[in-house]
Amino acid sequence: MNAALFFNLLLNGVIEGLIIGLAALALNLVFAVARFPNTATGDIMTVGAYAGIAVQGLGISSTVLQMLAAVVVCMALCVVLYRLVFRRLQGRSMLAVLLASIGLAFIIRAAVFLIAGPEQRVFQIPLQRAIDIGGVALQPSMLWLAVTAFGCMAVVFAVLFLTPIGRRMRAVADNRALARTSGIDVDRVMVALWLLTGAVCGVAGMVLGINTVVMPENGWNILLPAFAAAVLGGVGSPVGAIVAGLALGIVQELSTPFVGFTYKIALSFVALIVILAIRPRGLFGAAVKVR
């Protein structure tokens, strides 16, 4: 492998990794505090992307405004899901909530299909040519992607570790019963959690939609690698989610000269299994105590 190929693959891995990492970030929050793998995450992201498309359809071409709409819609959707379903399942087994989230994922996807139809939509964003540096293609849009992903991560980190509501979230994550007895309004904390999750889903859905095309199955398709990144990053670690997403993306792309392009998507699961066999709690699993 020559240097140019190596760096190209590395950069491609970074792009894919950041997209996956954002989805993993949304998974990770719920994983840590509400304690289940939220299978509906991908489909909530899809709804966000369609919200952005709808705003574009109104003639508003500002990506920032489109993203704002995606964020608001996803926040609202998450709170509705919490109020209608997840709150009623508090105290039930992880499996019960997981199964409910699969059901919700199906319902949301079916609704998107019925409302928006199967045809693809795209965000009309002017394309920029890559800058060629010694055979390495530098994509200007990558900068925006990185700023968005790390910005999102920083916001989530700040909310979790620097604000009173974040402190309460972590308390609930550590021990819900104890948190309740020490006077924390768990319901309010959970609403805050779902609002934050929704915001991340909105951003993640928009980022995915801008980089690819918007279709009803978009979010669902990215769910499995995002799951791998979320587990690998370790529950409750926003930095871990992004870093694990990056790591998986980079490993995946760098592996292609050796394993080819069809096996690369199996690689994130192989990596997941190997690492969990060695460290059952994930890479950053010890960063925040969960149980």
Binding site: N8, L9, N12, I15, L208, N211, T212, I222, T256, T262
Partner: peptide
């Protein structure tokens, strides 16, 4: 020649190959 798996966020590596 390249065979790619569908539903990926990007096909840049495949394309560069």
């Amino acid at each position: 020649e390249v065979v790619y798996e569908p539903n990926r966020p990007s096909y840049r590596s495949e394309l560069q190959r």
